[in-house]
Design a protein around this nucleic acid. Structure first.
Lengths: 190, 190
DNA sequence: GTCTATAAATTGATAGAC
DNA sequence: GTCTATCAATTTATAGAC
């Protein structure tokens, strides 16, 4: 009765845990409530006892990543220099992507997640501010391509199944180094 | 009667055209036969007259990209030096990704496409050979991370909606330059 | 918190007329 | 090549018992 709503082992947490894994394997649209229920060994109705709809599960599963993103945005926006802001964003982005590799797999490009962001003001706001910070200042086409390559490259690398054996530390180090190397090349941003 | 089966404007081509757009917007699982039929203004049965199943549409829509990949693999495997092979692969990959930006959006990480590759020997074969060529020789963790970042970064950049206004030429140039810059850094591959 | 049963809508797919 | 009609299966979601 006094159990934490978010604590590990609660029915709610088990649903989110299972959903996250299945979303990563089959995408959100390709995952049914039945699959989630089956994977934790309960009936569909039990899943609906915890969440009133599939969308609610998606939202709850993705929330931690948006929280991380909001934290980074808050920190970065407190800094005046655009270039420093950009650096904070990139390194923060790599950090929370690596910290939550499985969740990143879902967020990285699932159309359902994109729709969710579009339909919710708070998420659109945070994502927009994050993107603006990433761009640093007004860059030309080359700079925008590089930023896209870095962010999407990071997103995809942390979720790459063939890199599951690579440690979080190794991933973090290599990705940050590569990102900084690209950002340090002035020809992209002149 | 003598019309080309693959020519532009045939019913078959219109289905593939519509499917590709919808797959890009909603993912494969998120796209229904009804949506495809509606978007070209016909009934579902008419779509089924051209393709016997949804999987067949997916396969036909994705085929051109695998053909391109097979071409690059054939060319690269004819070269003895692993590093040259790698260069050919990267530049070939960037070229056909840019050439078919909309299709790349579908192939880039849709779980249905991944399942299709796994279930078809010919596709698994070509993708495996491509990946091996990309790796060049046996690289360590850092090198594998960089390769993943490049390939996924390219894939995602060509499909980035915010880069739709960037020309194919600009995209190609910038992506190739960035990829080569990362590949030329020995510390990743020692 | 979980179950069985079921509703209501949608999905992939087929039959047969035009 | 396209249509209407229809099917069986599945999907999201709810009601009510334990």
């Amino acid at each position: 009765m006094a159990k934490s709503v978010l604590g590990r082992g609660t029915a709610r947490a088990r649903v989110l845990e299972a959903a996250l894994t299945l979303f990563g394997e089959h995408g959100v649209s390709g995952t049914t409530l039945q699959m989630i229920a089956d994977s934790i060994g309960v009936g569909k109705a039990s899943v609906y006892y915890q969440f009133h709809s599939k969308d609610e599960i998606v939202a709850a599963a993705a929330q931690p990543m948006f929280d991380d993103m909001a934290r980074v945005v808050t920190i970065a926006e407190a800094v005046p220099d655009p270039h420093t802001r950009q650096e904070i964003c990139i390194s923060g982005f790599i950090e929370f992507s690596v910290r939550n590799r499985r969740l990143a797999a879902v967020l990285a490009g699932d159309p359902v997640l994109e729709s969710m962001v579009e339909s919710r003001e708070d998420l659109t706001d945070i994502v927009e501010r994050f993107k603006n910070l990433l761009l640093g200042g007004g860059h030309g086409p080359a700079g925008r391509v590089i930023i896209s390559m870095i962010t999407n490259g990071v997103y995809s690398a942390v979720t790459d199944k063939e890199l599951e054996d690579v440690s979080d530390e190794q991933l973090h180090t290599t990705l940050l180094e590569a990102a900084q190397q690209l950002l340090r090349t002035p020809s992209y941003f002149e």
